[in-house]
């Protein structure tokens, strides 16, 4: 029963990791950009949620109405001002610019909020749980998992059914010809980053409610998201969910053995997958 419980909790935790991973996977898919500051964006979202909840007295989950659009605008502007100029050159420029951003965000948050660990209180929902077959499932983790599925369904819809999705696919495949479709790729890339940052905002809110966070916790979130992406298979949306779940389960099982093994177990499963299935569990078909 302990093990079953750990697995179920791990699956639900995987929802959060899938949220971390989806934004990372999205911008990589559209513009081959890996945002080293992705984890710091998530923590930035957590602090935004904290401020919104504290100043407006909103329910944390309702704070999404403000946090998500703010993060989207932040992502859009950032892409247009800082990141678009780095694209199309070598690998170094985008990598190092986002690395610099990571340092700026971390220390900016430190300056404003100090290194104290924070948490956003969500009230009754935090402890509420439902009992299914003898397992007690927290309402919050369930909401988290449902949100992850909704986000991935939403992304899937955008990519396959909408004009923006066609533009994403076209630009990622052949940026030059996409311009001939009257697509301004600077705008398309910024829209992708805005969408990624919006998802990051959601992830940040859940992170803030679920655990303590402080300005230095971003990089670990980047690593978890990255591991979920690689485990699931690059460029596959549903793969990120699978990757998140595998990572979540590995971590909760590790923690069940010894709390010190939680994160380590996740890393080891990541390396195991990298050795056994370097293209991930669900590699994209068109390579």
């Amino acid at each position: 029963m302990v093990w079953l419980n750990a697995i179920v909790q791990g699956v639900l935790l995987g929802g959060l990791y899938a949220l971390f991973a989806a934004g990372l996977s999205l911008i990589f898919g559209v513009m081959r950009l890996v945002n080293i500051a992705h984890g710091d964006f998530i923590v930035l979202g957590s602090y935004l949620a904290l401020v919104v909840v504290q100043t407006l007295g909103l329910n944390p989950l309702m704070s999404a109405l403000i946090v998500v659009p703010l993060m989207a605008v932040f992502g859009y502007v950032l892409q247009r001002v800082l990141l678009n100029p780095t694209l199309g050159k070598d690998l170094l420029a985008p990598l190092l610019v986002t690395f610099g951003l990571s340092i700026i965000i971390q220390n900016g948050l430190l300056t404003i909020f100090t290194a104290d660990s924070r948490r956003v209180m969500a009230g009754a929902i935090e402890t509420a749980s439902v009992s299914i077959g003898g397992l007690s499932l927290g309402v919050l983790p369930l909401a988290m998992f449902a949100t992850a599925i909704a986000v991935i369904l939403g992304l899937d819809f955008i990519f396959t059914r909408t004009s923006l999705g066609r533009a994403f696919r076209a630009t990622s495949e052949d940026a030059e010809i996409a311009k001939l479709m009257a697509l301004d790729n600077r705008h398309i890339y910024a829209m992708a980053m805005a969408l990624s940052a919006a998802i990051v905002g959601l992830a940040g809110i859940f992170l803030a409610v679920r655990t303590n966070f402080d300005p230095s916790t971003g990089p670990m979130r980047l690593i978890f998201g990255f591991e979920a992406v690689i485990i699931g298979g690059l460029g596959s949306l549903w793969g990120t969910l699978a990757g998140g779940v595998v990572l979540g389960v590995a971590q909760t099982l590790g923690a069940a053995i010894d709390p010190g093994y939680q994160v380590l177990a996740g890393h080891l499963v990541f390396f195991l997958i990298l050795i056994l299935r370097p293209r991930g569990l669900f590699p994209r078909m068109d390579g």
Partner: peptide, 28 residues
């Protein structure tokens, strides 16, 4: 050879994960 399976920026983050594995291992 394991890390080289990752390309570009993903290689970069992969090296970071390796460092984290070392850190967590030595902490044990």
């Amino acid at each position: 050879p394991i890390l080289f399976r990752l390309q570009g920026a993903y290689f970069a983050i992969g090296t970071w994960v390796a460092a984290e594995v070392f850190r967590l291992t030595f902490a044990q």
